[in-house]
């Protein structure tokens, strides 16, 4: 299977990329690592008029510190995220989830920003970005704007990115010290997408849980926060019983789909079980 013909642009800077997008006609696709886009183009589910390939835009790669935040370039590959010492120190949840994305070869090409902009409900990184209160820096013809994770994911495969815009970097608050984190993923076979997964970050204080942030993967058309469980955990004792009780409300407010991998009620059950496991591990239990 071969993609339909397209015009190809290979900019080397963000400004050139924005120009190429503006000049690309009605149907422009931005190629990051290509591990979702190229398969979709091969199947002719997408047949863009122009492809703007970010592969050579070096300023979009790498992880750096900026005060209280980590700044992750949109074109940083999953493989580079996995081995980045700053991610390991301040956002190990990202590394844990990234390790479960697809397989070795796909992680060599696939990118952090590409996975977020694709916004697949079963993708692992959107719920992590939501749990960590990440911010998305978007470049467009009129300059840059910053969108919080809670507003970035709009619907199934749909984000706050407008036509002509480009995701350039993701800012993640540094969490260290008393924070523990865990990504719990449930899937059917190797390299499969999540049936359900849970991203948890927990701050402990004097034997109690001071704060818990919980992101849910594939429990609706967008990633979701398990707000009822978060509220139940705030100030709760860091015990197996308290966590199990709080996790029972993990599926509140979700709208999971039914498909070949599982019915909606099964996904609700998984969300509770995986939330209990993820929060327990993140709390050091």
């Amino acid at each position: 299977m071969i993609p339909a013909p397209f015009a190809y642009a290979r900019p080397t800077t963000v400004d050139e990329a924005l120009q190429a997008i503006a000049d690309g006609g009605e149907d422009v696709k931005i190629l990051a690592g290509g591990q979702s886009l190229i398969p979709v183009m091969r199947l002719r589910l997408a047949a863009p008029e122009t492809v703007v390939d970010l592969d050579r835009v070096d300023e979009l790669r790498g992880v750096r510190e900026d005060g209280d935040a980590l700044v992750i370039g949109a074109m940083t590959t999953h493989a580079d995220v996995l081995h980045d010492p700053l991610i390991g120190q301040y956002a190990p949840l990202i590394a844990q989830a990234t390790e479960t994305v697809a397989d070795r070869q796909v992680r060599r090409r696939g990118t952090f920003g590409g996975a977020l902009a694709h916004a697949d409900p079963a993708g692992d990184l959107p719920s992590v970005a939501l749990a960590l209160d990440a911010e998305f820096v978007i470049a467009g013809p009129n300059g840059r704007r910053t969108v919080p994770a809670a507003d970035f994911f709009v619907d199934y495969l749909t984000t706050a990115l407008e036509e002509g815009e480009l995701l350039v970097e993701i800012r993640v608050p540094k969490l260290a010290g008393q924070w523990g984190m865990r990504y719990e993923k449930f899937n059917r076979v190797a390299q499969a997408w999540s049936i359900v997964a849970v991203a948890a970050a927990v701050r402990r204080e004097d034997g109690h849980i001071a704060e818990a942030r919980i992101g849910l993967t594939n429990m609706g058309p967008t990633p979701l926060r398990a707000r009822a469980t978060e509220a139940a955990l705030a100030g709760a004792e860091a015990s197996a019983e308290a966590i199990a009780a709080a996790a029972r409300s993990a599926a509140e407010g979700t709208s999971p789909s039914s498909d070949l991998n599982g019915q909606a009620d099964y996904r609700e059950h998984l969300a509770q079980v995986l939330t209990r496991r993820a929060v327990s591990a993140a709390a050091g239990l």
């Binding site: 290509g34 190229i38 398969p39 091969r42 070795r104 796909v106």
Partner: peptide, 8 residues
């Protein structure tokens, strides 16, 4: 290592 069916 990359999957050469998913690289242009």
């Amino acid at each position: 290592a990359v999957k050469s069916c998913t690289v242009l």
